[in-house]
Design a binder for these strands. Structure first.
Length: 259
DNA sequence: GCCCTATGTTAAA
DNA sequence: TTAACCTAGGGCT
């Protein structure tokens, strides 16, 4: 259950432990039967875009998306352990092991299919070369609420339910505001805030969003302004944190700080 | 052990 | 709008 920062961390791990080597790729569970097409070939590099992970093997690109259940298990071994549970894909290089369980997607893509996936992805705040302007324009043209736009991977990629709530709180912006009614300087500030905060997530593995608590030592209970804090007093104004369901997801906000 | 929940997305109704 | 995907952790008994 990752947001973009987790996927970028996974890409970093693959680049460190598996890239530029011939990697064994198998599917103990059997549901990734195409593994044989890349098994034993060279992993050129790994790259994350938003919540998508791309592993560039010489014969083809492997796209992995964890969805809500997917999990990675990285480990070092002396003798290769038997797969535990349902392992969709197992990657081995030397004594390095990565087991993938329960992903929504683990599939080989043609160059054309890869391009189609890219075309559906909005700019990623974790990618220094991504186009902030595209994000600003999409929001400015939309009558959809900013709360929904931040979760739309074709508008901005890598943001999930936690960063959405926290970014909107930090911007003092009500999630129900239609995109076109949000002043462009505020939309730009949200982007810049994501650009500042998400690398902390990549670095530490934690979504650090709370001013004054932006270190890895932040305790879980202190970590967020809003996420999973419904009914508890807002850290800024003391008002109880609101919750509602928006497009199947829990939306947290402070009605006083985000009028 | 049982029940609930989850940082997500797609396809069908 | 709803169901499906189908793993793992946490709180409870």
């Amino acid at each position: 259950m990752p947001e973009g920062h987790t996927v970028h961390r996974t890409a970093n791990q693959f680049n460190k432990k598996f890239a530029k080597a011939k990697v064994s790729v198998t599917s103990p569970q059997g549901r990734f039967s195409d593994s044989s097409l890349i098994n034993g070939t060279t992993l050129v590099s790994a790259k994350a875009i938003g919540k998508q992970l791309f592993l560039f093997f010489e014969p083809a690109v492997l796209r992995i998306h964890l969805g809500i259940y997917g999990k990675w298990g990285f480990s070092e071994f002396e003798s290769l352990p038997e797969p535990k549970g349902q392992v969709r894909a197992r990657f081995v290089n030397g004594n390095q092991l990565a087991d993938l369980r329960g992903p929504t997607a683990c599939e080989l893509l043609s160059t054309e299919q890869y391009q189609q996936v890219l075309d559906r992805l909005g700019p990623d705040p974790l990618d220094p070369s991504s186009d902030k302007q595209r994000f600003l324009e999409k929001v400015a043209r939309s009558s959809v609420t900013i709360g929904q736009l931040l979760m739309d991977q074709s508008v901005i990629s890598g943001i999930g339910n936690v960063y959405r709530a926290e970014l909107l709180f930090r911007a003092n912006l009500n999630p129900h505001t239609p995109g076109k009614l949000v002043p462009s300087e505020i939309v730009g500030a949200i982007w810049e805030d994501a650009v500042a905060l998400m690398p902390l997530g990549v670095k530490t593995g934690y979504m650090l969003t709370r001013e004054g608590f932006l270190t890895a030592k932040t305790k879980k209970i202190d970590r967020y302004y809003l996420y999973k804090r419904e009914g508890l007093p807002c850290r800024e104004c003391g008002n109880p944190i609101s919750i509602e369901i928006l497009a199947t997801r829990k939306l947290y906000f402070c009605s006083r700080c985000q009028p």
